[in-house]
Structure formats: structure tokens, C-alpha cells
């Protein structure tokens, strides 16, 4: 495996279920975790809907993959940036999102939040700091 360590950003701008992009983006994140790169996820526009708490797909007959976001901490994926303006525009609040946490091995395995709410200007800076931007 390569020695290079790059900054990867996964940009999610689409709601789940209407298209397959959210699910297949998550599959890349899970596989990518094994490569030990710096990984961040960005949730912008309708992408914030991927993190909605209480997703129930039973009646729609689709596979519910929302639990996978909660497992990302176990894959060392700990930075899920959520854009504040995208939430506001959609009438959403942080409380509407599922709790996503990771265990900090440097702090006696304390559970810490992986969701980081940032404003649009901060999101621009996050994009500008990446080596690889994967958009889905």
C-alpha cells in the first residue's frame, strides 16, 4: 500500500433513497477507510437529509442504510461536516439529525460527536484544504 497520506473529502448533496448516490458513496467511505487516509464527509444541500434521525424505509420497501453512518466511528471516520445554512434552508435543526459518535482512544475511549456543524464559509475552507474531492 502507498505511503502517501492524502486528504479525501466526500461531498454529499443528495437526499437518500431517491437516488442511489448516498448509499454508494457510503460504500466508498467504508472501503476507503482501510487505506488510512485523512477522511472527511461533507453534507451540503439535500445531503443533510442523509443524516436524519428516525429513517424508516419499511413501507417504501427499500434498504435502510442509515445505521451505517453511526458505525463510521468504528472505521476511524470521525469528521462529518454538516452545513448550517443547508439545515436552515430546509427547516431542519441539528436535533433532527441522528447522533453519530466515535470513541476517542486518547481520552479513555470517551464518546465524542462526529457531526460537526459548520457555516458555509467554513465549508468553503474545508473544500479548499483537500487533496481529493469525491462528489456523489
Amino acid at each position: 500500500m502507498s505511503e502517501t497520506k492524502k486528504k479525501f473529502l466526500y461531498v454529499n448533496r443528495k437526499a437518500p433513497y431517491g437516488t442511489i448516490y448516498a448509499l454508494e458513496s457510503l460504500e466508498v467511505v467504508l472501503i476507503g477507510a482501510a487505506f488510512e487516509q485523512h477522511v472527511s464527509l461533507a453534507f451540503i444541500d439535500d445531503g443533510v437529509y442523509q443524516l436524519m434521525d428516525g429513517q424508516d424505509t419499511a413501507a417504501a420497501g427499500m434498504k435502510n442504510f442509515s445505521k451505517t453512518y453511526k458505525a463510521l466511528g468504528d472505521y476511524e471516520v470521525r469528521k462529518l461536516y454538516v452545513e448550517r445554512e443547508s439545515l436552515d434552508e430546509r427547516g431542519l435543526k441539528v436535533e433532527n439529525l441522528m447522533p453519530v459518535t466515535y470513541e476517542d482512544e486518547d481520552d479513555d475511549y470517551a464518546e465524542k460527536p462526529s457531526l460537526i456543524v459548520v457555516d458555509r464559509a467554513e465549508m468553503s475552507k474545508i473544500i479548499a484544504a483537500q487533496d481529493v474531492v469525491l462528489s456523489f
Binding site: S2, V28, I31, F35, Q37, V132
Partner: peptide, 8 residues
């Protein structure tokens, strides 16, 4: 993994 490798 081939996609991640390509990114790297």
C-alpha cells in the same frame, strides 16, 4: 479500493 488508490 481501486478508486481510493486512484485518488492516492
Amino acid at each position: 479500493g481501486q478508486l481510493i488508490e486512484a485518488g492516492i
